[in-house]
Amino acid sequence: MRILILFALFFMISATQAHEFSTANLTLKQTADDRHEGYLAIALSDLQQTLNLDPTHDGNLTWADLKSSHPKVINYFQKSADFNSSDESCDVSWGSDISLQDSYGETLLKQPVTITCSQPITVHYTAFFNTTSDHKLLINWELTEGQTQAIIQSPEQPFAVSTSSQSAWDTFLFYLYQGMIHIWIGLDHVLFVLTLLLHFVNKPASQNTSTLKTANAFNLKSMVWLVTGFTIAHSITLTLTALDWISVSSKWAEVGIAISVAYSALNVVTHWIKRLMLMTVAFGLLHGLGFAGALSELGLCKSHQLTSIIGFNLGVEIGQIAIILAALPVLWLLKAKESLRKFVVPASSLAIFALGMFWVWERI
């Protein structure tokens, strides 16, 4: 029973950690010598936790609540996001034409911002660090002379906007980090990888003893190879979409990803598809369309397109291997405890199947 509780805790922690990262996105484009326009995207959950925008305190933040409390939001940004040039503050205008967008199950507020300032510009950002754990600001700034990206991870970390194009190495590191983050915050991607791993501890009962012993061998190399096949597959569609060679509706891509989660979970107990690599590659192509959506939100570095794509894909692979390593102790327990495996694996698989089907209904 204690082992069962540990497994349940692991499952819940995995699901929770998929959304515990607090990330804001500052996207700007230079439209004149001294003018930069764009938006700051921040999760409503972060705003609610920090500013308590829900007047009824019932946990239900409505659009009307957000509109009525928008002056409070602007006042907070005015105090916590400072742009200056040569020790002089820039003229910053926070627009009122706000909108909402969905990103990996999180609802984000898109706050328009216009900055009037001569270069060089330094960004000082202190928002949410005191109230939200592991908060980060991602900056994607398109200049007439190049493009630059950066990550602000603490209030003591100012960022100097460079007028020259960002180096290939800095671009690679930025997108490598983004790839890792986006696999961890995408609960559907995380659960798909976990269902793949559950196949390794729930082989078909029809196999004879000698075959079962070989097929059910607890092989980390095989797990990594299977997940790498997933990476290679989604890298294909991600690259083609990022380069505008193919275009698929993001809505139907997300529906397909939800179907892949549900089917893979069901396959753990039905074993309809025994060649896991074929299923993984097929569904990996679907997941690549979802990752392409995330990459488009970040903005592909125009001066280092291939470097951006390679870094993002490699980051996703590293993130997936981290999921495998985190799951290994639980998988080993399930492998060692037959009575536990017979209960936990089907129960977990059916729970993930139900969640996947709920996503299908929700996304349609």
Results as ranks from 00 to 15, higher is better:
F343W: 14
E88Y: 11
L109K: 02
L109H: 08
S339M: 09
K72N: 03
A265V: 07
A326D: 00
G288D: 06
A262G: 08
W245V: 06
D82F: 13
L61S: 00
A262P: 11
N202G: 06
S260W: 07
E142K: 11
A160K: 14
D87V: 03
M279N: 06
L350K: 03
F353V: 10
T31H: 02
T27Y: 12
M180W: 06
K274I: 09
P155R: 00
G95K: 06
I74D: 04
T228M: 04
W94I: 04
L198H: 12
F159D: 06
L9P: 01
R2N: 15
P112F: 05
A150Q: 08
D170Q: 14
M1R: 11
F83Q: 00
W361E: 13
N84V: 10
I74E: 13
H199L: 15
E142I: 15
L191F: 11
D54L: 04
G299S: 09
T31Q: 11
S164G: 08
G146S: 01
Y39K: 13
G105K: 01
I139H: 01
K67S: 05
H234D: 09
I151T: 15
G186W: 08
W359F: 11
S235L: 04
I236T: 05
K72I: 05
Q48R: 00
Y76M: 07
V268K: 02
L197A: 07
S154R: 05
V268H: 00
P112R: 02
